[in-house]
Write a protein that binds this DNA or RNA. Structure first.
Lengths: 183, 183
DNA sequence: ATACATACCTACTAATAAGTAGGTTGCGCT
DNA sequence: AGCGCAACCTACTTATTAGTAGGTATGTAT
């Protein structure tokens, strides 16, 4: 893996572990055994790095959308839920949740990019729910948008809150989401 | 209001607006028109201030529990949901969510106090759900603990996520929680 | 009156932050 | 062989951070 990619990977990991304002270029340079200035060579500012990290998440999401296109709604939803399960397995939280907390401390460009990511997630879940409803595999009462928001908020906060309770709670929440939908 | 209380209020406000690692003693001293050292007089370290803020939340929660003791379950749940609605009206997030994000950057004492707060919230919501089920005003399938976690995660992340979508989404989520429970 | 505590102050320190100027190394291309 | 560029480096700046030492004003109890 090239250095630029490693910086993005590490920066992402730090944001989701400790938060945007708790990680520094020094954290990255130490961990990669390069100097502070070398990190700045790849990313002139913290904002450019932050933007690359958020964009990488959006790219990964689009790739996952495409990859699961032909799968059934349950598999699609599982693919979505597993993003959070993977985060939880490392005790990391969701990038959206982490940066939503720090939202008013980041530059407008970052805020904008983050909104685009949140939008992309929301649209995907809405699509999955619509398809599941049409195919009679999902059953729910509210609008697709609201139901999607309920599911996303469950997962987004589950990775956060279960840092304070226990990991088993996360599993229960995840399973309940699917169980409730499929009745 | 005395200075100590004002520092707690302001610190809490800053944590819930920008996150623990984005606020400084300088933010507080400037806003209260006192000097940095005066803030340190009341709170020797950032941790002592953080602890006081979390403890204040737990005190407020206990007072709210007591105050609504004799009310019916729907009113109790509304009292709980309105904590988040009040936060949302100022575009602030939940203290638990904010500090869960920064969890691995705060001292063990803070982590412990935060766990106690999360526990207190969870226990209250579980109680409300149990009472509601017994009195046949709430209807839900999963265990009380899991249902409580679902509701708390909905609200905790709703205040965060709707910074990126829109305020109306928050209202929908909140209303759906009650609507789903009362069928 | 004096002693003492509370609540502030001035003036500072050491550590860490993001960011920069300009030099060095090694590799591929012509 | 020599050019140019990518990817590093040394060495620095400026700002901000939490935290401290020690002094001052004001009220209260003896």
């Amino acid at each position: 893996m090239d250095t630029r990619t490693e910086i993005i990977r590490l920066g992402d990991s730090l944001i989701r572990e400790k938060g945007y304002n708790a990680f520094s270029f020094a954290d990255i340079s130490k961990h990669l055994n390069i100097k502070n200035a070398s990190v700045h060579y790849h990313f002139p500012t913290k904002t450019t790095l932050g933007l690359a990290i958020v964009q990488e998440h959006r790219n990964r999401l689009e790739r996952l959308k495409t990859k699961t296109e032909s799968k059934d709604p349950v598999e699609k939803l599982n693919a979505f839920l597993n993003i959070y399960a993977a985060a939880k397995s490392e005790n990391k939280i969701c990038i959206v949740g982490s940066l939503a907390t720090d939202f008013y401390t980041v530059e407008p460009e970052m805020q904008h990019e983050l909104k685009k990511l949140a939008d992309s997630i929301l649209k995907w879940v809405i699509e999955i729910l619509k398809e599941g409803k049409n195919k009679h595999v999902f059953r729910f009462r509210t609008s697709e948008r609201t139901k999607a928001l309920m599911i996303i908020t469950n997962m987004l906060a589950a990775v956060q809150l279960t840092r304070l309770t226990n990991k088993q709670d996360f599993k229960e929440i995840k399973e309940t989401i699917l169980h409730d939908l499929t009745q």
